[in-house]
Amino acid sequence: MMELIIIILLIISVYFSARFFLLSKNIREIKQDFKEISKDIERNRRLTLGSPNKDLENLLIDINEYLEKTQIEKIKSTKREEEIRKEIENISHDLRTPLTSILGYLQLMKDEDVNEEEKIEYISIVERKSKSLQNLIQTFYDVSRLEANDYKINNEVIDIHKILMENLLLSYNNFQEKNINVEIDLGKEDVNILGDNKAMDRVFSNLIENAIKYSKSDFKVSLKVDNEKAIIIFQNDMEDLKEGDLDNLFNRFYMKDNSRHNQSSGLGLTVTKLLVEAMNGKIKSKIEDNFIEFKIEFGIYSN
């Protein structure tokens, strides 16, 4: 009888020793794996269990969920850091270009061989470049305020038909200089909405400037009223249109021409989208038959 008890105790002892050994082994392996994963958290790796253990399995589920969330946040953080770095580069480039030009002309004006007529011309150029620099800085500031919902919008009843027509007339010579054919379908009736007059003027001028800059030969604009909505559509043909460009059009500093040689900040469409949304409107883009289209919708104002 005593021998049987000893055998049973021995079996129990071996069983628990084996369990303890496997548990210790699992913990050591998990600890080592966790250290390796922590060194490169962005890799899609998870902790695994070498031998079955219900309590450890539940613990690893919780740890792996934490690792997944941490990896996602790390990837987002890395991407955002890269975006910030690129944005700083773009801002530096955009500010440096007119500033370098201003300093260059100021240096020329110090030359004793420069006559008065040339100095007057240089002063005029410096004034234009300074105004361009001022506008650029204001645009950066406006984007910051719009994204922080700190941009003041004075909503009142405005006639977008009138605002759009005025902007098109002001740009008439620019279209002619670039031999761009313009098709206008605005109707003759007032189209009233609740919006900010200055903001709407900026939206239309930005989209028209974008068309002048990138149109190959044709530009179309229409204004319709449908189901109590004002629908404005801008269309222009472009070369090398790609659907992938649509995903980035409204992003800050995005330009189809990454060389940034066209003196553009790449913020025009960003500001346009933010202003439209600040006035409770919608804007979207699409590509169809080699034309890029910007469609804006606003609710019609009715007494």
Rank of each mutant, 00 (worst) to 15 (best):
M1P: 14
E3N: 14
L4I: 07
I5K: 13
I7E: 10
I7C: 02
I8L: 15
L9E: 07
F16V: 15
R19H: 05
R19V: 11
F20N: 10
L22G: 04
K25E: 10
I27K: 13
E29N: 13
E29C: 08
K31H: 10
D33R: 09
F34I: 07
I37A: 08
I37K: 06
S38G: 02
K39W: 13
D40M: 11
D40Y: 10
L49P: 12
N53T: 07
N53P: 11
D55R: 14
Y66N: 12
E68S: 13
E68V: 13
K69G: 11
T70W: 07
I72Y: 05
K76I: 01
K76S: 06
S77E: 14
T78G: 01
T78V: 08
R80V: 07
E81R: 14
E83Y: 09
E83F: 06
E83V: 12
I84M: 07
R85P: 01
I88K: 11
S92I: 02
L95R: 03
R96L: 09
P98H: 06
L99R: 03
T100G: 06
I102L: 01
L103E: 00
L103F: 06
Y105D: 00
M109Y: 09
D111A: 04
E117D: 03
E117I: 09
K119W: 01
I120N: 04
Y122M: 04
S124K: 03
I125C: 00
E127T: 04
E127W: 00
E127G: 04
S130A: 08
K131C: 00
Q138I: 07
Q138V: 04
Q138H: 10
